[in-house]
Design a protein around this nucleic acid. Structure first.
Length: 890
RNA sequence: GGGCGAAUAGCUCAGUUGGGAGAGCGCUUCCCUUACAAGGAAGAUGUCGGGGGUUCAAGUCCCUCUUCGCCCACCA
């Protein structure tokens, strides 16, 4: 290979490299998975991002993890399918488009359902496109030929199929309930879509006069405006204070309605006055009380958050204005006993922040009990495993206390509910195809339900609907169930749980085997990164500045087991530096590969071959380290410990390969070892690039392509497996001693202030023959790394004028550095004395242990042995220092 | 009210089954030594949140307290 013609630029330029290789990979169709029964599958259907906007760093982490695992498995020979797509995100996207309309002074009602839907589709095209572009820039090796959208044609069919089947099986029912109503979004939402916030408010105490004139009963409320809809007062049946009131009636102030006083064990006698006003149409608990006592339901607040006609003179007022005025009127009438400050949590719409109005309305629900059970079993018996494990209980607790799921939404963007109602006989029926006649009475006077389905109803089908369900496609047969779901912890209930029960229902199998809940990304201030909080960071910005590889590595390096991570730009900058280090490391190797021919090295490193090749200590050492890293990386990816894998590669490449091996290789390249060293450098670098490729795909491809290689892309090259034969404890220990000697000499130089350019004369001393041999063998390397002119190895300290040496001591050997002129005896004495003091401290600890019989008896033999070794090392070092002290002061 | 997680160097975080406290950034000193100044060499910095306990041995296990974050709950 002629390296002169292919000089790599000095600074890594991520711009041209990333675009070039992504286009190449696409062109080669490496991302595309065809069905291949001869190979084991690896399949993930990605969590489809909402088409509400662009992706932030949290998403970048999620999809980087997908891509790391995908690339790893692909290189390991799995038929790998990472299936991408996007989610229509009903309410969220509709809100975005409504905001857009509002800027034009329009509402969805102005332009009508059809036109509105057109606008949302346009929005989807735009932002869906942006998201896909972001994923591509991130380097994601997803199968774009199989990209899906939760409202594409086939998907719509799956949603209808699922709904109709569930409807016909009786899992879906229509019911009047108090639901969480968002007056701004104008729709009901599920319990999971409500977010609670602490609010400072008041507790109003109101006297309700008793009808018999015998006084009044006092109730406490946080929502005085709902009193207009009260149809009872409830007290606890055990509450002695109110026993005589039960069965009596009270006169509802302002309204004048006579309402019963009922007993219900729901009421907590400790809270407030122990008497509760009951508003069945505006509070889920009151609704339940109302059901138990057959109370009427009076809706006094309408869908817009305004008082209804039932509110009499307050009709038409905003709910908060009504509250003010009602409190005012009660005060005037002398019925307001007191007002207390009170802090409580108030439900807000997850999507727009508007305070939820509990409102009685008719909705479609999924009956959950029966569906939940198999989903509970699947996790309990381990068919689905949560990582980290602590989420198992969170899931199970929720599933075991599950409530029915409100799936209808009064929105225009989403899957229209495939239910028709017959105007003549009142029958509701579901149908996948547009219906025109009532199956019960034959009437054609039928109308489709205007509502759409909760987005999560469609998302719940994702792992199988994307593979073709309800059709029995080859993809579905081949790739289902998928291997793992990688997702954020905030959608365990909303999505994960629902995929599990829907999959068990429709596929009779779990949707995935592992659920990996990754870290929540926080910004520098420790706040959750979220678009709606305004704390999102655009990954594209970081990719532009530092490169995709840098961003990916920074994310993976920090992606510990579900731990939150604070993310800041400086992290990515550091990783960019790592990329540059790898780049220059590769430049060095490449510059020195002249004349290297890969073809002559087809054997690799077997134990015998390595002997035959005459491996030096540093060769054995770097091969040992390389294979240990290969082990850690494979284990790390396999156990979702990706940070461990990433960090070990960083340390290996920078602190071992570049800092030590390459430095030791430099002089060897000028000797007859050249060819062998070339092979070593190539081998270690090429293997490292393959190990690193899943995390940093672009730079590794660029380097790999520039190196001699076999195959057309690193993406499809085999992933390195650890070879235990090459793991070599002895070499690692010996190398540690050599490195220690270099550090000691460098340290002495710095201490005495010898200029880096100046070479020094060293005498290394040991009374251990093996150590002497080792130091002798390593002399060339030590001389080069520590800038040593003469390096003498002796069994005794240099005699003669000891005032001409400074020294440093470690276990097994000492180094003496000749200084020009005499040493500063005072300074040297001080240094040695302080070292002795520090050794004494350690020695005291070790001696204490070793003189403790309990320790000697209780601790395992190897630990005792280790302490003994430490003791002898310290003692040895101390005596050397004392000897030295003696020598210089004499 | 219940549950979960976190607390380790100035900052952000690693620390596998209990066995001589680590990295990156920042800081100090020196160096453009032909792979790399986005770099190299040397160095300083810790009551491992507090208090108990188990153990020969605790950052690691148990109890308790404090502070922060998150989740769940029918907080009228």
């Amino acid at each position: 290979m002629n390296t002169d013609n292919e000089k790599l630029p000095k600074v890594y330029d991520h711009f041209q490299v990333e675009d070039k290789w992504y286009a190449y990979w696409l062109d080669k169709k490496y991302f595309h998975a065809e069905i291949d029964p001869s190979r084991e599958n690896y399949c993930i259907t990605i969590p489809p991002p909402n088409v509400t906007g662009s992706l932030h760093i949290g998403h970048a982490l999620c999809y980087t993890i997908h891509d790391v695992l995908g690339r790893w498995k692909r290189m390991k020979g799995f038929n790998t399918l990472i299936l991408p797509g996007t989610d229509h995100a009903g309410i969220a996207t509709q809100n975005k488009v409504e905001q857009q309309l509002a800027e034009e002074g329009l509402t969805r009602f102005n332009i009508g359902r059809e036109k509105f839907q057109e606008r949302v589709w346009k929005w989807k095209e735009h932002y869906g496109g942006t998201i896909i572009m972001q994923l591509k820039r991130l380097g994601c090796s997803f199968d774009w030929e199989r990209e899906r959208f939760t409202m594409d044609e086939g998907y719509a069919d799956a949603v209808q199929e699922a709904f109709v089947k569930m409807f016909d099986k009786g899992y879906i029912y229509r019911g009047a309930r108090v639901v969480n109503w968002c007056p701004r979004c104008h729709t009901g939402i599920s319990d999971l879509e409500v977010e609670y916030e602490e609010e400072n408010s008041h507790l109003w105490f109101i006297n309700y006069p008793l009808a018999d004139g015998s006084g009044y009963i006092q109730v406490a409320t946080t929502r005085p405006e709902t009193m207009l809809g009260d149809t009872a007062v409830a007290v606890n049946p055990e509450d002695k204070r109110y026993m005589q009131c039960i069965g009596k009636t009270a006169i509802l102030p302002i309204v004048g309605r006579e309402i019963p006083i009922v007993d219900d064990s729901f009421v907590d006698p400790e809270f407030g006055t122990g008497a509760v006003k009951v508003t069945p149409a505006h509070d889920p608990n009151d609704y339940e009380i109302g059901q138990r006592h057959k109370l009427p339901q009076i809706v006094v607040i309408g869908p817009e958050g305004k008082m209804t006609d039932e509110a009499g003179k307050y009709a038409g007022l905003d709910r908060y204005e009504a509250r003010k005025r009602i409190v005012e009127e009660l005060k005037e009438k002398g019925l307001l006993a007191k007002i207390e400050d009170y802090t409580h949590s108030v439900g807000k719409c997850q999507r727009c922040g508007t305070t939820i109005e509990p409102l009685l309305s008719e909705q479609w629900f999924v009956r959950m009990k029966e569906l939940a059970q198999p989903a509970i079993d699947a996790v309990k018996d381990g068919r689905v495993r949560f990582v980290p494990d602590r989420y198992t209980r969170i899931y199970l607790d929720w599933m075991e206390n599950i409530k029915d799921w409100c799936i209808s939404r009064q929105l225009w963007w989403g899957h229209r509910i495939p239910v028709w109602k017959c105007a003549d006989c009142g029958e509701y029926f579901a149908s996948k195809t547009p219906a025109d006649v009532c199956p019960k009475c034959g009437s054609t006077n039928i109308e489709q339900d205007p509502d759409v389905l909760d987005t999560w109803f469609s998302s719940a089908l994702w792992p199988f609907a994307t593979l073709g369900w309800p059709k029995e496609t080859p993809e579905l047969k081949n790739f289902f169930p998928t291997n793992v779901l990688i997702t954020a912890r905030d959608i365990i209930y909303l999505w994960v749980a629902r995929m599990i029960f829907q999959s068990l229902q429709f596929m009779d199998n779990v949707p995935f085997h592992d659920v990996y809940i990754y870290a929540t990304v926080l910004n520098e201030e420790g706040r959750r990164m979220s678009k709606s909080l305004g704390t999102g960071v655009d990954p594209l910005d970081l990719i532009e500045r530092f490169g995709s590889d840098a961003l990916r590595y920074a994310l993976i390096q920090q992606a510990g087991m579900g731990q939150d991570m604070r993310f800041s730009d400086s992290r990515v900058e550091n990783t960019r530096n790592f990329g540059n280090k790898i780049w220059n490391l590769s430049r060095f190797v490449m510059m020195n590969l002249e004349g290297f021919d890969l073809a002559t090295y087809s054997g690799g490193f077997g134990s015998k071959q390595s002997e035959a090749m005459g491996l030096k200590l540093e060769d054995k050492w770097i091969l040992s380290r390389l294979n240990r890293v290969a082990q850690i990386v494979n284990d790390g990816f396999g156990n979702y410990d990706m940070d461990d894998a990433a960090r070990s590669l960083y340390d290996f490449l920078w602190s071992e390969f570049a800092d030590w091996y390459v430095e030791l290789a430099k002089p060897r390249l000028r000797t007859d070892e050249r060819e062998h060293v070339q092979y070593m450098l190539w081998h270690v670098l090429e293997t490292s690039m393959r190990l690193l490729h899943p995390v940093m795909p672009f730079i590794t491809e660029e380097i790999w392509q520039a190196l001699p290689h076999e195959g057309e892309s690193i993406m499809v090259a085999p992933f390195p497996e650890a070879d235990e034969i090459l793991m070599n404890d002895e070499a690692e220990q010996q190398m540690a001693a050599v490195m220690e000697s270099v550090k000691l000499i460098r340290n002495l130089r710095a201490e005495v202030g010898v200029a880096p350019s100046k070479r020094v004369n060293i005498v290394a001393v040991s009374d251990n023959s093996e150590m002497i041999e080792l130091l002798k063998a390593a002399a060339d390397g030590i001389k080069s790394l520590a800038r040593v002119e003469t390096f003498e190895v002796a069994s005794e300290s240099p005699d003669g004028d000891k005032g001409q040496y400074v020294s440093a001591h470690t276990a097994g050997f000492s180094v003496f550095m000749a200084v020009a002129g005499l040493i500063d005896v005072e300074k040297e004495t001080k240094k040695i004395a302080s070292e002795i003091a520090s050794i004494d401290k350690d020695l005291a600890r070790v001696n204490g242990k070793l003189s403790n019989e309990k320790f000697l008896k209780g601790a395992p033999a190897e630990i005792v042995e280790k302490e003994r070794r430490i003791q002898s090392e310290l003692t040895d070092k101390k005596s050397k220092l004392e000897e030295r002290l003696e020598a210089i002061s004499s």
